[in-house]
Protein backbone atom coordinates (compact mmCIF):
# COMPACT_ATOMS: atom_id res chain seq x y z
CA UNK A 1 0.00 0.00 0.00
CA UNK A 2 1.42 3.33 -0.97
CA UNK A 3 1.67 5.55 2.07
CA UNK A 4 2.80 8.71 0.42
CA UNK A 5 3.33 9.92 -3.08
CA UNK A 6 5.27 13.17 -3.18
CA UNK A 7 6.59 15.37 -5.94
CA UNK A 8 9.92 17.09 -5.37
CA UNK A 9 11.18 19.97 -7.45
CA UNK A 10 14.90 19.33 -7.14
CA UNK A 11 17.74 17.46 -5.48
CA UNK A 12 17.55 19.57 -2.31
CA UNK A 13 13.92 18.65 -1.82
CA UNK A 14 14.57 14.96 -2.55
CA UNK A 15 17.28 15.05 0.14
CA UNK A 16 14.86 16.78 2.52
CA UNK A 17 12.34 13.95 2.09
CA UNK A 18 15.21 11.56 2.78
CA UNK A 19 15.95 13.51 5.94
CA UNK A 20 12.29 13.33 7.02
CA UNK A 21 12.26 9.55 6.55
CA UNK A 22 15.62 9.30 8.31
CA UNK A 23 14.29 11.16 11.33
CA UNK A 24 11.89 8.25 11.97
CA UNK A 25 14.41 5.43 11.72
CA UNK A 26 15.86 3.20 14.42
CA UNK A 27 18.71 0.71 14.51
CA UNK A 28 17.69 -2.41 12.58
CA UNK A 29 15.54 -0.55 10.03
CA UNK A 30 15.87 -1.17 6.30
CA UNK A 31 15.16 1.32 3.52
CA UNK A 32 15.13 0.13 -0.09
CA UNK A 33 15.65 2.70 -2.83
CA UNK A 34 14.55 2.06 -6.39
CA UNK A 35 14.87 4.30 -9.41
CA UNK A 36 16.75 4.62 -12.67
CA UNK A 37 20.32 5.86 -12.91
CA UNK A 38 20.30 9.54 -12.05
CA UNK A 39 16.91 9.40 -10.33
CA UNK A 40 18.37 10.57 -7.03
CA UNK A 41 18.76 7.47 -4.91
CA UNK A 42 22.08 8.64 -3.47
CA UNK A 43 20.66 12.15 -3.00
CA UNK A 44 17.84 10.66 -0.94
CA UNK A 45 20.37 8.56 1.03
CA UNK A 46 22.41 11.68 1.82
CA UNK A 47 19.41 13.37 3.42
CA UNK A 48 18.52 10.20 5.29
CA UNK A 49 22.06 9.83 6.66
CA UNK A 50 22.13 13.47 7.73
CA UNK A 51 19.04 12.89 9.88
CA UNK A 52 20.89 10.05 11.61
CA UNK A 53 23.81 12.28 12.52
CA UNK A 54 26.20 11.23 9.78
CA UNK A 55 28.62 14.08 9.12
CA UNK A 56 30.92 12.37 6.63
CA UNK A 57 30.18 12.93 2.93
CA UNK A 58 27.85 10.23 1.60
CA UNK A 59 28.79 8.99 -1.85
CA UNK A 60 27.39 6.34 -4.16
CA UNK A 61 28.56 2.92 -2.97
CA UNK A 62 28.35 1.33 -6.45
CA UNK A 63 32.01 0.38 -6.46
CA UNK A 64 32.44 -0.41 -2.79
CA UNK A 65 29.08 -2.25 -2.58
CA UNK A 66 28.87 -1.48 1.16
CA UNK A 67 29.83 1.82 2.72
CA UNK A 68 29.48 2.30 6.47
CA UNK A 69 29.00 5.61 8.22
CA UNK A 70 29.17 6.53 11.88
CA UNK A 71 26.26 8.56 13.18
CA UNK A 72 23.82 8.83 16.07
CA UNK A 73 22.80 5.50 14.59
CA UNK A 74 25.38 3.83 12.32
CA UNK A 75 24.34 3.68 8.67
CA UNK A 76 25.21 1.00 6.11
CA UNK A 77 24.76 2.22 2.55
CA UNK A 78 24.59 -0.70 0.13
CA UNK A 79 24.45 -0.83 -3.66
CA UNK A 80 23.69 -4.25 -5.11
CA UNK A 81 23.89 -3.17 -8.76
CA UNK A 82 27.17 -4.97 -9.39
CA UNK A 83 26.06 -8.24 -7.84
CA UNK A 84 25.08 -11.09 -10.14
CA UNK A 85 23.86 -13.83 -7.84
CA UNK A 86 21.77 -14.08 -4.69
CA UNK A 87 24.70 -15.91 -3.10
CA UNK A 88 26.71 -12.70 -3.27
CA UNK A 89 24.03 -11.02 -1.16
CA UNK A 90 24.48 -13.75 1.46
CA UNK A 91 28.27 -13.47 1.15
CA UNK A 92 28.00 -9.79 2.03
CA UNK A 93 26.49 -10.90 5.31
CA UNK A 94 23.50 -8.81 4.33
CA UNK A 95 21.24 -9.79 7.21
CA UNK A 96 24.13 -9.16 9.63
CA UNK A 97 24.50 -5.62 8.32
CA UNK A 98 21.00 -4.90 9.59
CA UNK A 99 22.02 -5.45 13.22
CA UNK A 100 22.47 -2.25 15.16
CA UNK A 101 22.41 -0.09 12.04
CA UNK A 102 20.08 1.58 9.63
CA UNK A 103 20.61 -0.05 6.25
CA UNK A 104 19.89 1.72 2.97
CA UNK A 105 19.96 -0.39 -0.19
CA UNK A 106 20.13 1.02 -3.70
CA UNK A 107 18.72 -1.11 -6.52
CA UNK A 108 17.22 -3.27 -3.79
CA UNK A 109 14.22 -4.44 -5.84
CA UNK A 110 16.44 -7.00 -7.58
CA UNK A 111 17.06 -8.77 -4.27
CA UNK A 112 13.49 -8.42 -2.95
CA UNK A 113 13.40 -12.22 -2.65
CA UNK A 114 15.86 -12.17 0.23
CA UNK A 115 14.96 -8.85 1.85
CA UNK A 116 13.15 -8.76 5.19
CA UNK A 117 9.44 -7.93 4.89
CA UNK A 118 9.81 -5.21 7.52
CA UNK A 119 11.07 -2.30 5.47
CA UNK A 120 10.45 1.01 3.77
CA UNK A 121 10.46 1.05 -0.02
CA UNK A 122 11.11 4.32 -1.78
CA UNK A 123 10.56 4.45 -5.53
CA UNK A 124 11.95 7.52 -7.20
CA UNK A 125 10.29 8.10 -10.57
CA UNK A 126 11.19 10.49 -13.34
CA UNK A 127 7.75 10.39 -14.98
CA UNK A 128 6.77 13.57 -16.73
CA UNK A 129 10.29 14.96 -16.54
CA UNK A 130 10.92 17.33 -19.41
CA UNK A 131 14.03 19.18 -20.49
CA UNK A 132 12.82 22.37 -18.79
CA UNK A 133 11.93 20.56 -15.64
CA UNK A 134 14.51 17.79 -15.38
CA UNK A 135 14.90 17.86 -11.58
CA UNK A 136 11.27 17.00 -10.90
CA UNK A 137 10.83 13.63 -9.18
CA UNK A 138 7.89 11.57 -7.96
CA UNK A 139 8.62 9.71 -4.74
CA UNK A 140 6.47 6.78 -3.67
CA UNK A 141 7.06 5.72 -0.11
CA UNK A 142 5.71 2.43 1.24
CA UNK A 143 6.22 1.13 4.78
CA UNK A 144 5.62 -2.62 5.15
CA UNK A 145 5.47 -5.07 8.01
CA UNK A 146 3.78 -5.25 11.38
CA UNK A 147 6.27 -3.04 13.24
CA UNK A 148 5.84 -0.31 10.65
CA UNK A 149 2.06 -0.41 10.87
CA UNK A 150 2.45 0.78 14.49
CA UNK A 151 5.08 3.39 13.57
CA UNK A 152 3.24 4.66 10.50
CA UNK A 153 1.70 7.78 12.14
CA UNK A 154 5.15 9.17 12.97
CA UNK A 155 6.35 8.63 9.44
CA UNK A 156 3.20 10.18 8.00
CA UNK A 157 3.62 13.23 10.22
CA UNK A 158 7.24 13.62 9.16
CA UNK A 159 6.21 13.51 5.50
CA UNK A 160 3.16 15.77 5.91
CA UNK A 161 5.29 18.87 5.39
CA UNK A 162 5.85 17.85 1.80
CA UNK A 163 2.16 17.50 0.96
CA UNK A 164 0.60 14.95 -1.35
CA UNK A 165 1.12 15.30 -5.03
Amino acid sequence: MTMASLTTKGADETAAVGQAVGSQLRAGDLVVLTGDLGAGKTTFAKGLARALGVTQPVTSPTFTIVQEYEGRIPVAHVDVYRLDRIQEVHDLGFEELLEGRVTVVEWGEAIALVLPLERIDVRIGMDGVTDDDDDRRVLEIVASGTAWSARRPGLEAALAAFGDA
Partner: peptide
Amino acid sequence: RRSDAELAWNREVV
Protein backbone atom coordinates in the same frame (compact mmCIF):
# COMPACT_ATOMS: atom_id res chain seq x y z
CA ARG B 1 25.09 -22.43 1.39
CA ARG B 2 21.61 -21.25 0.86
CA SER B 3 19.96 -21.72 -2.49
CA ASP B 4 21.55 -19.56 -5.09
CA ALA B 5 19.87 -17.76 -7.98
CA GLU B 6 20.92 -15.29 -10.57
CA LEU B 7 19.66 -11.76 -10.05
CA ALA B 8 17.16 -10.78 -12.71
CA TRP B 9 18.88 -7.61 -13.80
CA ASN B 10 17.54 -5.67 -16.69
CA ARG B 11 20.60 -3.48 -17.01
CA GLU B 12 19.98 -1.17 -19.89
CA VAL B 13 22.95 0.04 -21.85
CA VAL B 14 22.83 3.80 -21.59
